[in-house]
């Protein structure tokens, strides 16, 4: 279980990026974090990844505090961030250098196959399309078999068709080992397609505004009336979160207090 307890981040320049954010995320849950710019969603993700330390509060995974990048936590960024001097296969195997070569090769081959890029193993990253490169990034993160996979607006740089394709593909991959997914997005449809729970955040300072459980069975039909209804619900919450006259309703809760399900 991933526990966020009053996570607060104040940057050295005085910006209050995140204010006492608390939540509990179960193993295998898919969480989407959505909110206007400056709501601290990327800050939160970087704190969970151990890339930036929180100013106050704690992030714990299975009771272990996270203060630095952790073996069980993987992250996928907005850009693929592949290493241009390594072939696609070597990029995927980058985090497996401690494994014996034979096992590494086998796991990389399986991962390549799983993301449908088996024929691109020896290709340089620059020769890939944007969608293919992001698939390699997904394979690189998943091949390490993380317990928690963080995604920072992973599909926002892609065209609409590729984005939808990769969302479905991500769910497909997730079903293999069912890691916890924490996804930062600004795309309402993406949040509703993927997530079990959508956390709506509001800015200045970044804090939790509303939590919406999406209890739709998968695979989800993007054209179903119920899907539309959830989308509208999230959109409304998003609008309200940006309206300064609306008081905080859900924010500043302590862990374990008032979880929805």
């Amino acid at each position: 279980m991933l526990q966020l307890a009053s996570v607060t981040k104040v940057y050295p320049n005085g910006v209050h990026a995140l204010e006492r954010f608390s939540s509990e995320i179960q193993l295998g849950e898919i969480i989407a974090i959505i909110g206007g710019s400056g709501c601290g969603k990327s800050t939160l993700l970087r704190a969970i990844a151990g890339l930036d330390r929180a100013s106050a509060g704690t992030v714990t995974l299975d009771g272990e505090a996270i203060t630095a990048p952790h073996a069980k936590v993987g992250i996928i960024f907005q850009e693929p961030r592949l290493l241009p001097w390594l072939s696609v296969a070597d990029n995927i195997g980058f985090g497996l250098s401690e494994l014996p070569a034979a096992e590494r090769r086998e796991r990389v081959a399986r991962a390549l196959d799983r993301v449908g890029l088996a024929d691109k193993a020896k290709v340089w990253p620059r020769e890939l399309s944007g969608g293919q490169a992001q698939r390699v990034a997904i394979a690189r993160a998943l091949v390490a078999q993380p317990e928690v996979l963080l995604l920072d607006e992973p599909f926002s740089a892609l065209d609409a068709f590729t984005r939808k394709d990769l969302q479905d593909h991500l769910l497909d991959l997730w079903a293999d080992a069912r890691p916890t997914l924490v996804l930062v997005t600004h795309d309402v449809e993406e949040a509703v397609v993927l997530a079990d729970r959508v956390l709506v955040m509001r800015p200045h300072p970044g804090r939790l505004f509303e939590e919406i459980t999406i209890n739709l069975s998968r695979p989800r039909d993007r054209n179903a009336p119920l899907f539309e209804q959830f989308k509208r619900h999230v959109l409304t919450a998003l609008d309200r979160s940006l309206d300064r006259t609306v008081p905080d309703t859900q924010g500043r809760r302590e862990p374990g207090g008032g979880l929805w399900w």
Binding site: A49, P69, H70, G74, R81, L83, A144
Partner: peptide
């Protein structure tokens, strides 16, 4: 810096 961050995510030691 983004590439260096990839190294951090995979917990590379200083020499690595």
């Amino acid at each position: 810096r983004k590439i260096v961050e990839v190294g951090r995510v995979f917990r590379l030691s200083g020499p690595a």
